[in-house]
Amino acid sequence: MLSFRASLAFLLSASVLAVTAFATPTHKKTSTVHARGTTHHISKPSRTSAKSRHKKLHGQQAIDSARVTEIQQALIRQHYMTGEATGQWDSTTVAAMQKFQSDQGWQTKLMPDSRAIKMLGLGPDYSDAINASGSSFAPPKAATDIPAAQASGFAAASGVNR
């Protein structure tokens, strides 16, 4: 009985070893080319290598020279730059923008921060928008221009007596 169990264990371990020995390799050769008596093996290219060779650039890569001129003029008005606006994003402009952003307590980047652009007065212009008149970004009406009924409604709602 003991020899039967020993031989059974031996056969099972031998079959496991045989299966792993005859298993297919992890790198498969896709095709074989025969030319003039020589054999060449062509392997399948990996997916990541093709993608890494052709990296696509995203987002804005450079600032337009007209926009650089506007930024430089604003930095000159704010006394962060001296001289004339050249329209070139050079080291002087970068240093001035970094100093401006640093003085505001913002992170200094090579590209201008949107908050810095707005602070320099170069933010978006909505004056030509369809709903520009009477919108929330239009200047508020003077207190004397509010109708009396509306003003009394505001006072009643706020609990303040006029």
Rank of each mutant, 00 (worst) to 15 (best):
D103E: 08
A129S: 10
S31N: 15
G123M: 11
N161G: 12
D103S: 13
P45N: 07
I117H: 02
L122E: 00
H54Y: 10
Y126E: 04
K141V: 14
A151V: 08
F10L: 14
A23W: 12
A50C: 03
H27G: 08
A50G: 04
A155M: 05
G153T: 10
M1P: 00
R67L: 06
F137M: 05
S135T: 14
H58V: 12
H41I: 03
S43D: 11
V94A: 00
L120N: 06
Q104T: 09
K109M: 06
P25L: 02
P124F: 02
T24Y: 12
A142D: 13
D128M: 11
D113V: 09
T20M: 11
K118Y: 02
A35V: 08
T144L: 05
S43G: 03
Q107C: 02
V94I: 15
Q60V: 13
G87Q: 00
R47H: 13
S127W: 07
F100S: 00
K28D: 05
R53Q: 07
Q150N: 08
D125H: 09
H27Q: 15
T92S: 07
A74K: 01
K51E: 04
D128V: 03
S46I: 04
A66P: 03
P139G: 02
T38Y: 01
A9W: 03
M97W: 08
T93Q: 00
R67D: 02
A85K: 02
W89E: 01
S46L: 12
T86R: 13
P139V: 07
Q98I: 06
L57A: 15
R5H: 08
P25F: 03
L110I: 07
L75V: 03
V68F: 07
Q73F: 01
M97S: 05
T20C: 11
A50R: 13
F100Q: 00
K56R: 15
V16T: 09
Y126R: 08
Q73S: 06
A151Y: 14
A129P: 05
Q104W: 07
L57K: 15
S158T: 11
A132V: 14
T24H: 13
I146D: 02
A143S: 14
I63T: 15
I42F: 06
T48L: 13
P25K: 12
S13H: 04
A6E: 09
R67S: 04
P45V: 09
L11F: 12
A142H: 12
I130H: 01
K55L: 02
T108V: 10
H41N: 15
A132C: 06
T38C: 14
G83C: 13
G83P: 07
A156S: 10
P139C: 10
D90F: 00
L12E: 11
T108Q: 13
I76C: 01
I71C: 08
A116N: 04
A21M: 04
D125W: 03
A23L: 11
F22M: 05
T38W: 06
D128F: 06
S91N: 01
A6Y: 15
V19A: 05
S136F: 12
H41P: 08
I42R: 11
L57R: 15
S15P: 01
K44R: 14
T30C: 04
H79V: 10
M1D: 03
Q78H: 11
M81Y: 02
Q107R: 09
S43K: 05
T93P: 00
F100N: 00
Q104Y: 01
A66E: 12
A9C: 01
Q98N: 04
L122S: 07
I146P: 00
H79A: 14
H41M: 03
A23N: 02
M1L: 07
L110T: 12
